[in-house]
Write a protein that binds this DNA or RNA. Structure first.
Length: 600
DNA sequence: TTAGGGTTAG
């Protein structure tokens, strides 16, 4: 029987199928045999038959070995130093470079490329995409930039769509998305893959709005329809922005264009609905999915966790295990987040302390972050600090920063000082640490030291990152910064803000100035507080959406106590549901209360 | 005979 392909397979009777079946070298290929034993049998057969001296057949064998499994790469490399006269051509070199690019040792792709040049072979248009991918995996922009220079020198830039897309992808992720955009604009062929590389680049560097603009531009530019990969990036951008209307539109685009709702895309959509505050939609889609992998379950558990549905998250985790799905590091993170927001301190501690034993998962800095957050939020700061000290992992700035916030919330000045020292060791110009110091000295009346800290910050140009809130109205995402007056509807927003202040004051609300930055007097503090970005966003939401509709806001920092109290009162006074996603979790404000139960 | 684009987490 004639085999449908010329992929090299071995038979136990030591007869090579290629030879036996008279298959031509140019036939199309079957999936590669992954079994090392089979590959070795084929190798032996080809040696016996002498066909190994055919460069094309030898190349196929090397390619199959190099791309079967990373553990076979040393075996594939032996062909470069084989004592018998096995011919090696550019195809074989490319196959080896490709194999290493996708392995845990991408640096070997680069050394192979150098060796290829040293041995007098010419890289071709297949070689560079593999090398650029290796340099992306290596996260070493110098390697990729040097390759880019070579590509230009050899006149290959702009000539080959594969090289061009590889360059766009490399620049977008490792150098600058602006350069990637320039390369994209200059490219002669723009297909769905090059659009995808750029859109993904915008997502990777956090420019989610630009990712969506590029997707819209892709629609406007012609007949190219987004595919599953496009949608993964676009849906992820919507999730980051909390842009529900756009996310819904993208979901319908997927259906309209009959794109398969794959496991990955379904998972991305569940995440999008959860991150946009639509946890019920996320759940509905989750249970509708025929196939679910560990990511699907993790995304759903995390969604429940950030909405404060801690018990449901733990129940779902148990369900996941009943389905035989093995949890990974991200699943455990989601569980710890659930415990943290649900105030389930002991449960969280138990999961954390047993994760190695129960699930064979080594705690990472992310897990420590969760557990420190869990303890810190519950006011158990000493335990949190002791845990960090006991850890064999080096605490990073995020971990210390999280503890510092809890020191401020729980007014533990002594520990705050310790934490600040640790932060300044890692980042001498950390804004949060300096602000803490200044506030701390101000509280104890040491104004001369306060002035020193302020001067230092001015000299060093250290600024706190501004609070920012996003709100989507009629499919357009509007961003507000604290004290922002740049919006076109500035007058209306500030009038509504005054009205909010008047109404909440009638309800007996007193501005909670504790969390406000220094450098301003008390009256200004109140003004500053009233212009926090989420308040501007809610004022804009109130004047630009229909009465009774839900207002959704995404904030980049943790919501402050004053804004939290005001949101509760606004939800009651204006009869609105207000959903705020801060950097940690969701707050659903309705009829004067919040879903977090004032624990966040 | 090989090739470019991929969703989740403190």
């Amino acid at each position: 029987m004639r085999a449908p392909s010329s992929t090299i397979t071995a038979h136990t009777n030591s007869t090579c199928r290629i030879a036996q079946s008279g298959i031509h070298r140019s036939s199309t290929s079957l999936p590669s045999p992954s079994s090392t034993k089979l590959l070795k049998q084929t190798h032996a057969t080809l040696l016996r038959s002498g066909e190994i001296h055919d460069a094309i057949i030898a190349g196929k064998l090397i390619s199959n070995i190099a791309n079967s499994h990373p553990s076979n790469l040393p075996y594939a490399l032996t062909f470069l130093s084989h004592p018998t006269n096995i011919p090696i051509n550019a195809f074989a070199w490319n196959s080896l470079i490709r194999g290493f690019a996708h392995s845990p040792f991408p640096e070997n792709s680069i050394s192979l490329y150098r060796r290829m040049l040293d041995e007098g072979f010419f890289p071709n248009n297949y070689t560079y995409p593999f090398l650029l991918k290796a340099s992306s995996y290596l996260e070493d922009s110098r390697v990729g930039l040097s390759l880019h220079a070579t590509i230009i020198r050899r006149g290959l830039d702009g000539m080959d769509p594969f090289i061009q897309t590889s360059l766009i992808s490399f620049h977008a992720v490792l150098v600058s998305v602006e350069t990637a955009r320039q390369l994209f604009d200059e490219s002669l062929v723009r297909d769905v893959t090059s659009w995808n590389a750029l859109i993904k680049g915008y997502v990777a560097c956090g420019q989610h709005m630009n990712a969506i603009y590029m997707f819209q531009a892709m629609q406007d530019c012609g007949p190219i329809c987004g595919d599953e990969i496009t949608m993964l990036s676009v849906v992820s951008a919507c999730a980051h922005l909390g842009a529900l209307e756009m996310g819904r539109w993208v979901h319908s685009y997927i259906a309209r264009n009959r794109l398969v709702l794959s496991l990955n895309l379904g998972t991305a959509l569940i995440n999008m609905y959860a991150k946009c505050g639509e946890i019920d939609n996320a759940k509905a889609l989750f249970w509708k999915m025929q196939e679910k992998d560990v990511r699907t379950w993790s995304v759903m558990i995390n969604g429940l966790a950030i909405h404060g549905h801690a018990k449901e998250a733990l129940v779902l985790f148990a369900e996941m295990q009943r389905f035989g799905v093995v949890p990974d590091s991200v699943t455990i993170t989601a569980l710890l987040i659930a415990c943290s927001h649900g105030g389930m301190v002991e449960r969280g501690r138990t999961i954390f302390s047993r994760m190695r034993m129960d699930y064979d998962i080594e705690p990472t800095i992310e897990h420590y972050g969760c557990i420190v957050g869990l303890l810190g939020r519950a006011g158990r700061l000493d335990e949190a600090l002791a845990l960090i000290r006991r850890s064999s992992l080096k605490p990073d700035i995020v971990l210390w920063g999280s503890l510092l916030v809890d020191c401020m919330v729980h007014k533990n000045i002594g520990m705050g000082e310790i934490v600040v020292k640790e932060i300044l060791k890692l980042d001498p110009s950390n804004a949060g640490a300096h602000v803490f110091l200044s506030n701390m000295y101000a509280t104890s009346g040491k104004w001369d030291v306060v002035q020193e800290v302020r001067n230092f910050m001015k000299e060093q140009m250290i600024h706190k990152p501004p609070g920012s809130s996003l709100i989507e109205v009629n499919g357009v995402v509007h961003e507000f910064l604290s004290g922002d007056s740049s919006h076109t509807q500035f007058d209306g927003i500030y009038k509504m803000l005054d009205e909010i202040c008047r109404l909440v004051s009638l309800k007996g609300h007193k501005p909670l100035v504790g969390g406000v930055s220094f450098d301003i007097n008390d009256e200004d503090r109140e003004v500053c507080l009233s212009q926090h970005s989420e308040k501007l966003a809610v004022a804009f939401g109130l004047i630009s959406t229909n009465p009774g509709s839900v207002i959704r806001i995404v904030k980049n920092l943790r919501i402050c106590r004053d804004c939290h109290a005001v949101m509760k009162l606004v939800s009651e006074a204006f009869g609105r549901i207000i959903i705020v996603r801060d950097c940690n979790r969701f707050h659903h404000f309705s009829k004067g209360s919040c879903s977090c139960g004032d624990y966040w």
